[in-house]
Design a protein around this nucleic acid. Structure first.
Lengths: 196, 196
DNA sequence: GTCTATAATCTGATAGAC
DNA sequence: GTCTATCAGATTATAGAC
């Protein structure tokens, strides 16, 4: 996703949400300012409050929901590139690594920083992030069941796959190196292949 | 680690650093203000700049280095509670889960949020966080070698263990549930037990 | 719906007395 | 070394014209 502004032919509310999601991806909630959102969405300051009377927190919740659905789509399509479920998980890690490197290591998970910043400050944001993580876990779990795995094994593996890729992506961003993600992908594939 | 202020019988610089590390743990870099640091460390505003002429960024780098060493100690002692390397990794996840729950899900990794916020903004902070992650990975890898694993296998497993626990801890904080950490611990133990 | 103007507050940082 | 006082700028949010 290049750093272009949101096109102006989509409705104002959507432009605000996508701009906020992008800014949260590059630095989290506190780093993002309403001024920046207005600039990237081509919406002047006060207008933002017409769509989001709850202010910045409201925008963040909407942006989290937006990012949730967007990444779920990415997950589904990425997991569909290979037939074998273990290969699919490994391919997913590779796609994540490629996407991250192409953005110069800045476009990681749009939710991690925001979620951590919201702990003890905004239950609305925190629980929206929690819902997204759980959603992604079920997307992976469903794909594993489809690939022949036992449902309960698939459920726990789903959360581990999502959380491990999450952590590995952070490490990749810190070191500007795809290594952690690729290594994680291989290890997760190992786990999916294991019988128990 | 309870939310008490730093005792005043340690030197001023150390009080500033530990206060900053604690604040970064609960909300990251941008959420932390110099005013808060001064209050928690019982140091009035201007004095902070006597020890950290580089300002907030300088303090953050020192706090990252402090948290690096502190968590490395935790890792070493936690990994020493079991003889079998796989059991040691699983115990480590359990200790992490207990510590997190005891803090009401707020005292997670002191570096994740700060690291993500620093991407594209402060190379000094970002590379300090990267060094900490790599340090922790070698601590785990050394313990795995000590437990009989092949050195190259131990090296890659070390990064996966650290990054997976990292991601699982974030998920645990979001859901206020130890589940993700415990599940991750079991899966990582499985990986350590696997031959290849 | 969208805009400009502005209020009220907080921010990081500096200067200078002691 | 530590303090108080203060600067200049940014922040979220609101009011009201169009």
């Amino acid at each position: 996703m290049p750093a272009t502004r949101t096109p102006s032919d989509v409705d104002t509310r959507t432009r605000i949400v996508t701009a906020a999601a992008g800014l949260m991806q590059r630095g989290g909630y506190q780093t993002m300012s309403l001024k920046q959102i207005g600039a990237e969405a081509s919406v002047s300051g006060g207008s933002i409050y017409h769509f989001f009377p709850g202010g910045k927190e409201d925008i963040a919740v909407a942006a989290v929901i937006h990012a949730d659905e967007e990444f779920a789509d990415f997950l589904r399509s990425s997991l569909a590139t290979r037939e074998d479920p273990a290969d699919a998980v490994e391919a997913c890690a590779e796609h994540l690594a490629r996407r991250l490197e192409e953005s110069d290591w800045v476009d990681g998970c749009p939710l991690t920083a925001t979620g951590l910043e919201s702990v003890g400050r905004s239950d609305a944001i925190r629980s929206a992030v929690a819902a997204a993580f759980e959603h992604w876990s079920t997307v992976v779990a469903d794909r594993l069941v489809e690939g022949g795995l036992d449902r309960s094994r698939a459920a726990t593996l789903g959360t581990t796959v999502v959380n491990s890729l999450e952590g590995a992506e952070v490490a990749a961003q810190m070191t500007c190196d795809a290594g952690p993600l690729l290594t994680s992908g291989r290890h997760l594939a190992e786990l999916v292949r294991a019988v128990s």
